[in-house]
Design a protein around this nucleic acid. Structure first.
Lengths: 192, 192
DNA sequence: CGGATCGTTGATCAACTTCAACGGTCGTGG
DNA sequence: CCACGACCGTTGAAGTTGATCAACGATCCG
């Protein structure tokens, strides 16, 4: 399981054997069943979770009781309520499993220790976050300037495999459009 | 001018004198007049720009010729077309000055050198990006789940001073709503 | 002074949401 | 092992929000 993690890390930085074994010790494996929570809003988010296998979602519930998916995570991604994780305030997001999952957890304290003891991990996370910013930037632009149809097509074409694994009403929630609208978009596409 | 930069850096990490003078050498000052471009779409983005003074915007122009502001930057922020900066591909964003500005530029090569020579700067950027992710996360949630009115109110209340300095049609563009809509929202608010 | 820039207002229109009802499929407990 | 309920997607009809188009007024600046 740790191999998935190293594989992912070594796409971005090179680790010595010493570093590799130092890194390994900070992580705790955890498995999650479908529908099981990793984090519930209101709790403090104790961990950064690396997904070795499976599919999860981060979502929040607004004042009117509507759920909004904000992130999907699958093999090779990290999830957490970052704000809660970093500052200790109660989480506003829930995280649960869409598919059974295998995770590697990193606690707040260990995150600090890891980046201090193994400086190259600062670099790894810096690069990771850099890429994450690019992704969010793109999504923001898309969310602001594209139609529902464009957003949907963009999503499935930039995530061809995972989009198959995610129920459509969750994709709708992620894109901020009504599930019925996706239904109609698909119908519309078939006509042509 | 460099003091603004150090002030900002030292909010996140502590620098030794040696580090401080090492860091300083990597930056080139540049001043920009109102309306002047820092970057034009199509060019490659050569620099990360730290804003010591002034106000800038990042925007792109879509197929229909509409401009979409994606980021505002002011004192203490960094701007660039990240993707272009990191990968060298032509920029899709324009960056120009809304107010006269004083910048400190960091080239791609120097960014690499800086983070390699002064590892604590990896940490600085890691923390910077961490925060940037939080901001974008929030904006994404807002953009997906809030009404035009809520987005507008959120923007001015979370950016009380700068929002005064930005023309309203640019705020509209940033929020992805029509300028007329902001006009009507304001009118509506006055009634109460 | 005259044009460019920015905000306002009114009228119309389109995209998408909401509400309601229905059909299919999956999984769990009797 | 079947039946029932939860879950998910689909379809139709009606309603709303916000965009678009057009015209106008104000202000700023060269």
């Amino acid at each position: 399981m740790v191999e998935v993690l190293f594989e992912h890390i070594e796409k971005k930085v090179t680790l010595s054997d010493a570093e590799r074994s130092a890194v390994k010790d900070f992580f705790t494996p955890k498995s999650l069943r479908k529908r099981q929570y990793l984090l519930q809003a209101g709790d403090s988010c104790k961990y950064l979770a690396f997904i070795a296998e499976g599919l999860l979602r981060t979502y929040n519930t607004d004042d009117k009781g509507n759920e909004h998916v904000s992130v999907f995570g699958w093999e090779g991604w990290w999830l957490s309520d970052f704000n809660s994780f970093l500052t200790g305030v109660p989480a506003i997001y829930n995280i649960d499993a869409i598919e059974d999952a295998q995770l590697l957890l990193l606690s707040r304290a260990d995150y600090e220790k890891l980046t201090l003891n193994v400086p190259i991990m600062d670099r790894y996370f810096r690069i990771l976050f850099q890429n994450s910013i690019l992704t969010k930037e793109r999504r923001l632009t898309s969310s602001i300037s594209h139609t529902a149809k464009e957003k949907y097509l963009e999503f499935i074409s930039s995530n061809p495999e995972v989009s198959q694994r995610i129920p459509q009403h969750l994709i709708a929630s992620y894109l901020g459009i009504a599930p019925e609208t996706i239904s109609r978009i698909k119908k519309d596409l078939l006509k042509k």
